[in-house]
């Protein structure tokens, strides 16, 4: 296993001349919870899209566990163990809550092209699915139609579905966004728990969450890395404070950029 599970070299993406991500060298240490922060429009989601191959880089290289994955497809990268969540909740609204998680679990059975087989053959995944739902506090809603869940629960379900793949590297795009205080602390605890045996790279605006959870923070601004390091050092960096609050007097704390 490499020291750095993920590494980018000169990662760049331009949209019709506008450079959204510019020469980013990112190194995510295996086992860490690594935060990617920065004001809105800094290019965080674009970085995620590049890492998971939803977008093709204009330039640069992406290495996962020492292997160059720059030319791979999204599904391939996912099967390597790089699984993302989305900034806007991504669930399957007209499937039941349990079926959402089962979609994550069923690929490993290798029967997903078998159109002649009954879906009852997937019932043996129920126990595992319910375990994951239990972990995010949705066990009681397993049979409900997902579209009827409140927003915070949908985000929690998305996390459970991501965990179903037992990913080596989890990319979480603002996992606590739009959640109430209670949900935020539950999700924070959950991330801490699941990060025990995997690596997490997360975009997060809530600085309390970042401060309490993350080992390393990379600050992105206008597509470029502005600063990197542990929370205390980054939070004290006047350039970071200015980027966030527009003034170097303000203190970096629990706010949207």
């Amino acid at each position: 296993m490499s020291e750095f599970i993920l590494e980018t070299r000169g990662l760049t993406r331009a949209f019709k001349g506008f450079v959204a991500v510019s020469g980013v060298d990112l190194r995510v240490r295996t086992g860490h919870i690594h935060a990617l922060i920065g004001p809105n429009g800094a290019g965080k989601t674009t970085v995620f899209n590049l890492l998971t191959k939803f977008l093709i880089p204009t330039d640069g290289q992406i290495l996962f566990d020492g292997i160059d994955i720059t030319a791979e497809h999204p599904a391939q990268v996912a099967r390597r163990g790089v699984v993302r969540s989305f900034q806007i909740s991504a669930v399957f609204p007209h499937l039941s809550v349990r079926d959402n998680v089962r979609i994550g679990l069923q690929r490993k059975l290798g029967t997903s092209f078998q159109f002649w087989r009954s879906a009852r053959s997937l019932d043996r995944l129920n126990e595992e699915a319910d375990g994951l739902l239990e972990a995010v506090g949705l066990r009681a809603q397993a049979e409900e139609l997902t579209v009827n869940l409140p927003y915070g629960s949908k985000r929690a379900l998305e996390l459970a579905t991501t965990l179903a793949l037992d990913p080596r590297l989890m990319l979480l795009d603002e996992p606590t966004q739009g959640m109430g205080r209670e949900d935020v602390s539950r999700v924070t605890e959950l991330i801490r728990k699941v990060a025990a045996d995997r690596t997490v790279l997360m975009v997060e605006h809530n600085m309390n969450v970042v401060a309490g959870l993350c080992d390393v923070i990379t600050v992105l601004q206008r597509g470029q890395v502005l600063a990197e390091g542990p929370y205390d050092r980054v939070a004290a960096d006047p350039r970071v404070v200015e980027a966030y609050m527009g003034s170097s007097d303000a203190v970096l704390e629990g706010h949207h950029g």
Partner: peptide
């Protein structure tokens, strides 16, 4: 059905 419901999500699940 998963693809119909959310293509990007199905893709990201491999």
């Amino acid at each position: 059905k998963a693809i119909r419901e959310n293509e990007a999500r199905a893709l990201s699940l491999g």
